[in-house]
Nucleic acid binder design. Structure first.
Lengths: 206, 206
DNA sequence: CCTACCGATCGGTAGG
DNA sequence: CCTACCGATCGGTAGG
């Protein structure tokens, strides 16, 4: 009566649950509530997903896949750190805000899942997301484009800077302002820039 | 039998619950489990705290108080952005890692509380924590020490950079490495430095 | 502060 | 045999 409602139920569950888990967290949302939102029975949920944890994991994996595809295309960009980082960020900002926010959901809620689930997702997360940024940072250090700081730390610093754009809750919900993103990349690069073409005074540490 | 166990039960509940909420999140931890950990009855918990939300709020407020006291002392520091930011960060890093992590707990879980509780905490959070950093940033912009960017955005960028040091879960648990902290402040300041002149603000190593 | 409970809801599963 | 569910209920636990 209300609608044909037959738009791939599997996907409709994923979409609705994504939104609800984002608002309420893993333990703050029940399978019953998801079922009501999707207008299937709770048993219907369990036909499509083994249990709550596997449903949640499917959400995280789907979000990571979206990001991965976007980042893959952007990775062809060659040149220095700046064009590469900017291209990566632009690609990330082109995926929907809600799928971006799934990465934040992952970092907040992963600890509440079983050890096996955590391990399996964390592996993919590093391979497909963090690793891509860290690789650019490592290359830039090798080229002397940025200071010889710990690449892992530098990556986390950079991610921390753009973190608000993965959320829409801490900051303004408008979201992906390209100018702001570019400025933040600029701040990062200016902050960590190496001795190559500027002053050598910042280089050494012991 | 087991222990005298009479070390201010109110505080023991706070301490134990802080640790457990940190591991499990607001909805991932039951009052029953807290009671068992503290070795009081569940009803005993309700003698000391009105309900689960008020217990959780007490934890957040206590953590904020610790930070507030430390930051108040550091706020006497005068001079440019750099000494002021460094003093503030050093003060923050002197409070225990677990109390620092309470701020992260707040940012993760606050959304799961009632609107009234959220509002009451967020007010204090801005007044006593974020506001202190934003004030320094605003002063620095007014003095031309750093670029004329949105102070709110700059504050969130800075907080994002030091975010890992509020956790102990995303990064190494060792926690507060002063050298890393100083370097990050240096990266931020170098990244946002203004047109005034690059005098002492570039020197981050001693 | 405890024992003894409540209305309701939790994640998950039965047979059809 | 299949896909795609349903109404009802399981044993336990939630906050109060």
């Amino acid at each position: 009566m209300t609608a044909p409602a037959t738009g791939d139920i599997h996907q409709r569950i994923l979409d609705q649950a994504t939104q609800l888990f984002m608002e309420r967290g893993y333990h703050g949302l029940s399978m019953r509530e998801i079922a009501e939102a999707v207008q299937v029975s709770k048993a219907g949920l369990y036909y499509h997903f083994q249990d709550k944890e596997q449903l949640f994991l499917a959400i995280l994996n789907y979000g990571l896949d979206q990001l991965n595809q976007a980042m893959q295309a952007a990775e062809q960009t060659s040149g220095g750190v700046e064009p590469r980082l900017q291209a990566l960020l632009r690609a990330i900002m082109r995926v929907s805000a809600s799928q971006r926010a799934v990465m934040r959901l992952a970092s907040h809620e992963l600890a509440h899942l079983s050890a096996a689930t955590q391990a399996s997702f964390r592996q993919r997360y590093y391979d497909q997301f963090i690793g891509r940024i860290e690789r650019i940072v490592r290359d830039a250090i090798a080229q002397g484009e940025i200071k010889a700081i710990d690449p892992h730390l530098a990556t986390w610093v950079f991610l921390g800077m753009v973190y608000p754009f993965f959320s829409g809750s801490d900051m303004r919900d408008g979201g992906a302002d390209p100018a702001q993103i570019e400025m933040i990349v600029g701040i990062f690069l200016n902050g960590v820039k190496g001795s190559k073409k500027s002053t050598a005074s910042l280089q050494m540490e012991s």
